[in-house]
């Protein structure tokens, strides 16, 4: 893994900062010099995971590139809440074009920088899961395939939250959305559907693919840093809980991300040239139920009739992830 956690020092690298660590080992987010690429005053909901993830990732990218960064942004929550006329929250050069073309816009920017001999200026493209796994998938795959020099960041909150919480191909099984309602014999999003975009990205054999969550800042920052060490197409898939769409308390955003990781629901790993090179281990394994229960989108699994069968299927999927990516610390 790019990120080697510091084992001790009270909270080690689990917290955002740690006054006991040497400066060089501290996170970007813990420093007052952090760029706040996404500034205050944005109109994201309370406890927005995407706002947090975007600032984490882009600040890290700004640090890694010494501020030589341009971002292209897909239509979606992040775009809408950050740039309603007459105000923008972005402090970096940023462009929004359309919902489905962000990867291609980024390709164009990267081409412009290359042709102008400004290869020190790096390009990120970012979008939500809808803009990435669904409508933007064609352009994304094209950008991957051409190995264009773009870091694409997907902020995955598992649905079209901006338009009122509809299903996307990143919506997890059993989750209730406005288009997969919790009604009928198989309430919520069907099992057996959806895209594993990190795996698809890896299948393009691009230099670098990684997943992260907003609950592991240091891991996320290390992955952005690592991504910036490569030229060519790179993909970072960040799980960003959405209090609105998931139906959890706004204070639980980071906790939800943590539980997604600690339950095995969301494997956090990285891959280079199509091969997995490391996985973030689960520290305190929890049953998926602990992750599902605080979320209203899964409320139908608990009442009026507990759906242990469905929870078991979700647990099985988590267990598969744990096996597949080796998420449990093995005793030597």
């Amino acid at each position: 893994m790019s990120f080697q956690p510091v084992k001790f020092y009270q909270t080690g690298t689990f917290t955002v900062g740690n006054r006991l660590l040497p400066d060089a080992e501290r996170s970007v987010q813990s420093t007052v010099r952090r760029h706040n690429s996404l500034n205050s005053g944005h109109r994201a909901c309370q406890g927005c995971g995407e706002a947090l993830g975007a600032r984490y990732a882009i600040d890290a990218a700004m640090e890694a590139t010494s501020g030589q960064l341009i971002a292209a942004n897909a239509t979606g929550c992040l775009e809408v809440f950050s740039t309603p006329y007459p105000e923008t929250s972005w402090q970096i050069p940023w462009v929004h074009s359309l919902f489905g073309n962000t990867a291609a816009v980024a390709t164009g920017i990267a081409a412009a920088m290359r042709v102008k001999g400004r290869s020190e200026v790096r390009v990120v493209a970012q979008g939500g899961d809808g803009g990435t796994t669904d409508i933007g998938f064609g352009c994304l795959s094209g950008m991957f395939e051409r190995n264009d020099d773009v870091l694409y960041i997907c902020y995955d909150n598992g649905g079209y939250m901006n338009t009122g919480v509809q299903r996307s191909s990143a919506t997890p099984p059993a989750a209730r959305t406005a288009t997969t309602m919790a009604v009928g014999p198989t309430p919520g999003n069907p099992f057996g559907q959806g895209k594993d975009l990190p795996a698809i990205a890896m299948a393009h054999n691009i230099p670098y693919v990684a997943t992260a969550t907003v609950s592991e800042l240091r891991d996320l920052e290390a992955k952005v840093r690592r991504a910036m060490e490569f030229r060519g197409a790179r993909y970072l898939h960040i799980l960003v809980p959405c209090p609105l769409g998931w139906g959890h308390d706004s204070a639980l955003t980071i906790r939800m991300a943590r539980l997604a990781h600690e339950s095995g629901i969301f494997p956090v790993f990285e891959a280079e040239s199509g091969e997995v090179t490391g996985a973030s281990k689960i520290r305190r394994q929890v049953p998926v139920e602990e992750y599902l229960r605080p979320q209203k989108r899964y409320a139908h699994l608990f009442s009026p009739k507990p759906r242990e069968d469905v929870i078991r299927r979700i647990q099985e999927a988590a267990d598969r992830n744990i096996r597949k990516y080796g998420l449990l610390e093995t005793t030597p």
């Binding site: 009270q10 909270t11 917290t15 955002v16 900062g17 740690n18 006054r19 996170s27 987010q29 813990s30 007052v32 706040n36 996404l38 500034n39 205050s40 944005h42 994201a44 406890g47 927005c48 995971g49 706002a51 947090l52 600032r55 800042l217 955003t253 980071i254």
Partner: peptide
């Protein structure tokens, strides 16, 4: 508070001001 910077880092709205060591 032991200045772990968590509040400073996790605020989605950058609404925490770090006052220094």
């Amino acid at each position: 508070c032991f200045e772990c910077d968590n509040c400073y880092g996790v605020c989605p709205d950058n609404a925490v001001i770090k006052l220094g060591p």
